[in-house]
Amino acid sequence: MARLVAEDTDYAGCPMKRGDKVLMAFPAGNRDPEHFDRPDEFVIDRQRDRHFAFGSGIHRCLGSNLARMELRVAIERFLDRIPTSELADADAVTWSGGQVRGPRPVPVRW
């Protein structure tokens, strides 16, 4: 996810030289309060949801629509088979940081 700086520039007081590598912190973008209402919460039915999980622009993952469909089917099947499932202990859910941000662990009971 790193990019090369094409020409010497200064962005927000941060000088960058041609050839420098810049790492785009996608998880930070996915938590931008200017683009996401309640950015630090998991909102499964969020309507405005232009996240970077599958990349962006010309580098967008070709399989993103298939992955979304697979996840939807998996969740629907899980809920059909185990409709009484619930989060066992919300305080036990911790979140990993870095490039792949997500809940670890998620205790569920049914």
Rank of each mutant, 00 (worst) to 15 (best):
Val100Leu: 13
Ala74Lys: 02
Arg68Cys: 02
Val100Asp: 08
Pro103Gln: 09
Phe52Ala: 15
Phe42Gly: 03
Phe36Gln: 07
Arg3Glu: 00
Leu87Tyr: 01
Gly13His: 10
Ala92Leu: 05
Arg31Trp: 01
Gly97Asp: 13
Phe52Cys: 13
Glu41Pro: 02
Pro39Met: 07
Arg18Asp: 03
Met24Asp: 06
Gly13Cys: 11
Leu71Val: 09
Glu34Arg: 15
Ile58Cys: 06
Arg77Glu: 12
Asp49Gln: 09
Tyr11Glu: 09
Ile75Ser: 04
Met69Cys: 04
Asp32Met: 11
Ile82Ala: 03
Val22Trp: 07
Asp8Arg: 07
Phe52Gln: 12
Ser56Thr: 13
Asp40Ala: 00
Phe78Gly: 06
Val22Glu: 09
Ile75Asp: 04
Leu71Cys: 04
Val108Phe: 08
Pro83Cys: 14
Gly19Tyr: 03
Trp110Arg: 08
Val108Ala: 07
Arg31Phe: 00
Ala53Cys: 11
Lys17Ile: 01
Trp110Tyr: 13
Pro105Leu: 08
Leu66Tyr: 02
Arg60Pro: 02
Leu71Arg: 03
Phe26Met: 12
Trp95Met: 12
Met69Gln: 06
Gly29Pro: 11
Gly29Ala: 15
Arg68Lys: 11
Leu66Met: 07
Arg77Thr: 13
Pro107Asp: 06
Arg104Cys: 05
Ala92Gln: 09
Trp110Ile: 08
Asn65Phe: 05
Met1Leu: 12
Phe26Gln: 02
Glu70Gly: 02
Arg77Cys: 10
Arg31His: 15
Ala12Phe: 14
Asp80Lys: 14
Asp89Ser: 14
Ala28His: 07
Arg31Asn: 03
Glu70Ile: 05
Ala90Val: 10
Asp89Met: 05
Arg104Met: 10
Ala6Met: 06
Val100Phe: 14
Val5Gly: 04
Pro39Val: 11
Tyr11Asp: 01
Asp45Asn: 11
Trp110Met: 06
Ser85Thr: 15
Glu86Leu: 10
Asp40Gln: 01
Gly57Lys: 13
Asp45Trp: 06
Pro83Leu: 10
Arg31Tyr: 00
Tyr11Thr: 10
Trp95Arg: 10
Arg72Pro: 00
Pro103Asn: 04
Asp91Pro: 01
Phe78Leu: 15
Met24Arg: 08
Asp80Cys: 13
Ile44His: 09
Val73Gly: 03
Pro105Ile: 05
Arg77Ala: 13
His51Leu: 09
Leu79Asp: 14
Val93Tyr: 05
Pro39Trp: 04
Arg77Lys: 11
Asn30Thr: 13
Pro105Thr: 08
Val5Ser: 05
Val106Gln: 05
